[in-house]
C-alpha cells in the first residue's frame, strides 16, 4: 500500500502554530517533548534506585520523596503526541517497521549513530532546559531571548557539522 504524500510544509506549520497558540490560550503554556522523556528517566531510576533519586538534586527536583515524576502537564501532552503521530501515520499509510538511513551507511551503522546523536541531543536539552519543541518552538513564539539564542545554536551546531557528517546522509 503506497504512502500518502506529506502535508504541504506551510499548511503543516500553520496547523502546528494553531495548536501551539491553543496551548497558550487554554493552559497558559507551550508545547514540549524532552521534559516528558526526562520524567520517564526519573521514573525508571526511581523504580530501580529510589534512594539515588532522592540523593541527586537534579533528579529529586523531578521525583524526590513521594513526588510522582509523571504528574505533570507535559507528560500528558507528550502521550498525546504519541497518539497524534500514530493517527497521522495511519491516515497517511506510513506505519511500517523500517530503518531510515543514508545511501552510504548500513542500517546497523545508522542505529549506532541514532543512539549517539540521541544521547548528545538529550544531554544538550537538559543543559539548555529544553529541546526544539519546548525551547526553540515555544520560546520562539513568545520571543524569549534565551530561546532564540538556543534555536540559533541548534541550527549552527547542525549546519557546522553537516559537512563532516555528509557520509551519513547523502
Amino acid at each position: 500500500m503506497p504512502s500518502k504524500p506529506y502535508f504541504n510544509p506551510y499548511l503543516a506549520g500553520i496547523g502546528l502554530g494553531l495548536v501551539l497558540l491553543a496551548a497558550f490560550l487554554i493552559s497558559g503554556r507551550g508545547l514540549g517533548a524532552s521534559g516528558a522523556i526526562m520524567r520517564t528517566v526519573v521514573q525508571a531510576e526511581k523504580a530501580v534506585a529510589p534512594g539515588h533519586v532522592d540523593a541527586n538534586p537534579y533528579l529529586s527536583a523531578y521525583g524526590g520523596g513521594d513526588r510522582n515524576p509523571w504528574d505533570e502537564w507535559l507528560v500528558l501532552e507528550t502521550l498525546g503526541v504519541l497518539v497524534g503521530g500514530l493517527l497521522s501515520g495511519a491516515f497517511g499509510k506510513r506505519i511500517r517497521r523500517e530503518i531510515n538511513h543514508g545511501p552510504r551507511i548500513t542500517p546497523r551503522q545508522r542505529l549506532g549513530y541514532a543512539l549517539v546523536g540521541g544521547a548528545l541531543f538529550g544531554y544538550g536539552a537538559r543543559l539548555a532546559r529544553g529541546c526544539t519543541s519546548g525551547v526553540a518552538l515555544t520560546g520562539g513564539a513568545t520571543l524569549a531571548v534565551g530561546s532564540w539564542a538556543t534555536m540559533l545554536a541548534i541550527f549552527a551546531g547542525a549546519y557546522g557539522l553537516a559537512y563532516f557528517m555528509r557520509r551519513l546522509w547523502i
Binding site: G117, G118, F121, Y123, A128
Partner: peptide, 13 residues
C-alpha cells in the same frame, strides 16, 4: 546546550 543538540541532530537525525 543548543550547539550540543545541533551536533546530536546531524548525527542522530
Amino acid at each position: 546546550g543548543g550547539l550540543i543538540m545541533g551536533a546530536g541532530f546531524i548525527i542522530g537525525g
